[in-house]
Amino acid sequence: MTALGHELKASYAFVERNFNLSRRYWGWEIAYLVYAIAGALAISLIGAQLGDRRLILSLMIGATFWNYLSIVFSFIADTIAWERWEGTLEYTMMAPIHRRTHLLGSTFYAILYGLVHTAVVLVVLALFFGLDMSRANIGTAAAFMVLGSFSFVGIGIMAAVLPLLFVERGSQMTFVLQSLILLVSGVYYSVDILPGWMQVVSCFSPATYVLDAVRKGLVDGVSATALLGDAWPLVVMGIVLIPLGMWVFGRAERYARRTGRLKRVG
């Protein structure tokens, strides 16, 4: 078998393991799903109260796409944190696999899980509000979801470094980072209403471009080719952030091995 084949097979270890974890923690999976659906519904109902169909759709898009992006981000960012909690980190780190194989497996499951989870949320919202997709350009939404995934994978990998470096506080930091991305990315409102400095920060969040483009595509039927202004920052971020994330991860792993931070406690 080729080296690539071996790597793909080894990365499947993470997919299978994470799937088994989801299965064994099915009670929590249902609880989170209900929470995600209730949250998305609650926010979209603000549009219903104002009697604004366009706002309902816009809020639904915010809720579902943020659901997807935040799952991709947090699953990858928590790759290390989970293993720290379980105490298995040292065993995984001493296995004869490349770190890219490890991260590829985590990423693959994150995307798969995010898609399934988000699809369920979307179906429930569509049934509840009855979607008017006559003008929607699905191709635009799909294209930006794919583009945005790349940048989120990159940010996720960089965030995964935090639990490697900070034994106790790392996963708290990734959680705060995720909250900040939510705040500045215009998930439920236009970034134009943010204070100037926050608008500057929002330019660095890939979610800003994904949500803007998906909204234009699904609400106004704008085609992907007309949204190059949203596309190029995502392309640049994807190209830069994934290799940068891998590099940062490698450095952090080396640092953790030098200072003894892979150990379970302290």
Binding site: R17, N20, L21, R24, Y25, E86, G87, T88, E90, Y91, M94, R264
Partner: peptide
């Protein structure tokens, strides 16, 4: 390696 604390995914 086997260490003093058998570390596993506890639910698996």
């Amino acid at each position: 390696r086997v260490s003093v604390d058998a570390a596993f995914f506890k639910k698996l």
